[in-house]
Structures are given as C-alpha cells and as structure tokens.
C-alpha cells in the first residue's frame, strides 16, 4: 500500500509545473490518473507580500465540504516572495472519480475589525484506473 501511494505521488509530480513567484497557488487546474485508492497532487502556494504570512491549505469537495485528505504541510509560515511545494493525497472513498478543490488560505492582516481571508482554490479531478 505504501508503495502504491508513492507511485500515485510520482504520477502527480508530473502535474506540477515549476513554481513561479507572485502567484498565490499553482497549478489551479489538473487531472490525475491513479492506480490506487488515492491520488496525489503537488501544489505550490506562494507569498506575494513583502513580509512573512501564515498559509493554510484545505481540501474541499464540490459542495465546499471538507475532505479528509492528507496535506503535508497543512499550516506553515511562508517568507516574502517565497513559494514551497505542498503534497496533497486525496482518497477516492470508493469512487472511480473525484473532484476536489485545493485551497490556499491566508489572513495577511489578522486582529483587525474586518479581516479579509484571501482564498485561492484550484480544481482537481482524480481518475482511478483499474
């Protein structure tokens, strides 16, 4: 099972383009074929601000209900103009296809009266091959 997940991860690596600065998350679209009961996506959140921010990664289904995905890491500090890879492993939950949103969220100005949470969501489609 562990090897299968590694294989699925390896398949997903091809999906990820070279991370670019000044983007909040890339890619924002993708399709993944997997031969296991999970599929993996690697995304690159980026910090376009001139200071460090806290970034959270969340996975939702099409109705914006949380998905029990494995996110490594799911909360982290990101330096100014920096980007880093995040690996998301999504279970098919018994289905052969699954659409999910992977969202990068940050509140760059916390502790204000009206806070704005910037959320960039990518749409990803997993296909389970037999």
């Amino acid at each position: 099972m562990k090897h299968a997940r590694i294989l699925a991860t390896a398949l997903a690596v091809g999906l990820a383009p070279i991370a670019a600065k000044a983007q909040s998350m890339s890619p924002m679209r993708g399709e993944v074929n997997s031969f296991t009961d999970v599929f993996a996506v690697r995304v690159f959140p980026a910090n376009p601000y001139d200071r460090k921010i806290q970034v959270e990664i969340h996975v939702y289904d099409q109705d914006f209900q949380p998905v029990d995905a494995r996110i490594s890491p799911n909360v982290f500090q990101l330096a100014s103009q920096a980007s880093r890879p995040v690996l998301v492993v999504v279970p098919f939950d018994g289905t052969t296809e699954r659409k999910v949103r992977i969202c990068t969220e940050s509140i760059p100005f916390p502790n204000q009266q009206t806070q704005i949470r910037a959320q960039i969501c990518g749409k990803f489609f997993g296909h389970r091959k037999s």
Binding site: S26, M28, R29, Y49, P108, F109, Q113, T114, I116
Partner: peptide
C-alpha cells in the same frame, strides 16, 4: 498559460 489568480490584500475594512 494555465488559469492563475493572485489576491493581495492591501487594506482591511472598517465598519
């Protein structure tokens, strides 16, 4: 060029 989006919060609001 894949769809991309950048949001940069400039100021917070006041009520």
């Amino acid at each position: 060029v894949a769809p991309t989006c950048t949001l940069v919060v400039a100021t917070t609001g006041t009520m």
